[in-house]
Design a protein around this nucleic acid. Structure first.
Lengths: 229, 229
DNA sequence: AAGTGGTCTAGACCACCGC
DNA sequence: CGGTGGTCTAGACCACTTG
C-alpha cells in the first residue's frame, strides 16, 4: 500500500462520513502534508484521484471542496456490433449498401467543417435478419487509410474502432418511429419504434467520424453499470 | 501552454499519424525526457493524460504501447428530472398519481426479494405538458424515512438522489410503443414510441430503489460524453 | 496583494515482470 | 536478473482568483 493510496482512503473516509462536506473547505496541501507526514507531491497525487472520481473540486486561491452530487452517472459501453450479435448467440452477417466519397457528400451535422468526407451505409444482420443500420461519415483528413479499405469485406464500425485512435466520444441516444426507408431496409413496420445511437468521435479536437446506428427497438436494450456517481 | 501540454500534443500527433501504432513500443521516459529537454516527471505528466484518455497502456519492464480498442465507452449522466426540464428552459410541474405501501405491492422485478416496499407513481411536467412518467419501488428497509415523506410535495426522484447514498447503479435504456395507459397519461398517440429508462440502485448490495421512467420519444434524447472512452 | 493550487526539476529508491 | 514504469521528496517558481 503506497502512501498516496492510504491518504486517498483516509480522505474518502472523511467524505463518506461527512466530516468533510460540500459546505467546508478542505485543509491546504501543506497542512495535509504535515498532518500525514509526506511531501506536498504525495498529497497532490491522492487529491488528483479524488478530482478524477468527481468527489472534490479544486480552485486556486479559494481552495478545495467536496462536490455536491446531484445526478446519477454510470458507464455506457457500446461494443462492436459483430461482437454484440455473437455475444447474444446470433450468426453475424454484413452487407455494404453504399460507399461514396467526393465533394457532393453533405455533412448534415455541421460537425466536420469542410473536411473531405466518405459516406458509408451498411447493414448488420443477426441470423440473416436485419439487426442494425449504420450510416457513417468519415473525415478523410483524419483517416486517409479509409480510401484504401474495402468496406465490403469489413464493416467501418469494426475497422475504425480497432484501428483508429480517439480521445473523446459523444453519444446521443433517442427513439423515433421508422420512416418508410428504414422500415423497408430493416424489414419492420412503418412507424415501429427505432432505437437510435449517434456517436461523434474526436481525436484531440479533430473530428474523426460520425455514425448513426438505427435499431429496431423490439427486443433491444442498452445496459450500463455503475460509474462512480 | 505548459510543457507537459506541448509534449502531450506532440505525442497525440504521433498517435494520430500512426507513427506510433499498437504494434510499436514507445521510447522510454528518460529518452523522451532528453528528446524534449524536460525532466522525467514532465514526461510522466503528459503520459498520464494519455493513459487517462485510454490511448496508451503502460507496463513495467515491457514499456508503453498505443491501445488497440475493442469498444466505445462513455459516461452516462442522468440528472434529476426537475433540473433537466429547467435546463431546457421549461417550467417544471409535478403531480403525484399514487403512493401505496403494504404487502399487496407486487415486485415485478424480483429485485427486492421480500423487502417491504412502497410504490409511487408520478408525473413530471414541462410547461404544463406531460414530460415523463415515473413508476418507482422503494425498499422501506433501506429507506424507512420514505414513510414520513410527503411525496405530493417533492418527487421521489429528487428526494432520493439528493438524500440517499448509493454505491452502485444499473441502468437499462430501451424504446417501445406506448400502450393505451401510457398514451393516455402522457397525452400522446397509442403506439407512439416511448423512451424508457430503468434504474436499479444499491447501497452495498442492499437494493434501494427501482424506477422506470417513461418518456415520449419525440424531441427527447440522452447525451453522454467522455474524455476516456 | 496575497494565498492557493499548478508546474517543473533532479534525484533516490521501489517493485513488478519478462527474459 | 535487469530494465521498465511507479512512488516519493524538497524545493523553486508560476499563475489564477478572490478579497
Amino acid at each position: 500500500m503506497h502512501s498516496y493510496e492510504i491518504i486517498r482512503a483516509a480522505m474518502l473516509g472523511k467524505i463518506a462520513d461527512q466530516i468533510w462536506t460540500p459546505a467546508d473547505t478542505l485543509p491546504h496541501e501543506l497542512d495535509l502534508a504535515r498532518e500525514f507526514d509526506v511531501s506536498r507531491g504525495t498529497i497532490r497525487r491522492a487529491m488528483a484521484d479524488l478530482v478524477q472520481m468527481g468527489l472534490i473540486e479544486r480552485r486556486r486561491k479559494s481552495g478545495t471542496r467536496v462536490v455536491a452530487r446531484k445526478q446519477h452517472s454510470s458507464t455506457l459501453i457500446i461494443p462492436v456490433v459483430r461482437k454484440e450479435i455473437i455475444a447474444k448467440g446470433g450468426q453475424y452477417g454484413y452487407k455494404l449498401l453504399k460507399c461514396e466519397t467526393g465533394p457532393e457528400i453533405v455533412d448534415m451535422t455541421g460537425y466536420f467543417a469542410d473536411a473531405p468526407l466518405m459516406r458509408i451505409g451498411c447493414l448488420h444482420l443477426s441470423d440473416g435478419r436485419p439487426y442494425q443500420l449504420e450510416d457513417r461519415l468519415i473525415n478523410l483528413d483524419a483517416v486517409p487509410a479509409a480510401l484504401q479499405t474495402d468496406f465490403a469485406a469489413i464493416s467501418p464500425n469494426e475497422w475504425l474502432v480497432e484501428r483508429v485512435p480517439y480521445s473523446s466520444v459523444r453519444t446521443v441516444l433517442r427513439a423515433q418511429p421508422a420512416d418508410r426507408e428504414h422500415a423497408d431496409i430493416l424489414k419492420i413496420a412503418e412507424n415501429a419504434p427505432l432505437f437510435i445511437i449517434e456517436r461523434q468521435t474526436r481525436l484531440d479536437s479533430t473530428p474523426v467520424t460520425f455514425v448513426k446506428m438505427s435499431h429496431p427497438a423490439a427486443g433491444f436494450a442498452i445496459v450500463t453499470d455503475t460509474g462512480d456517481g
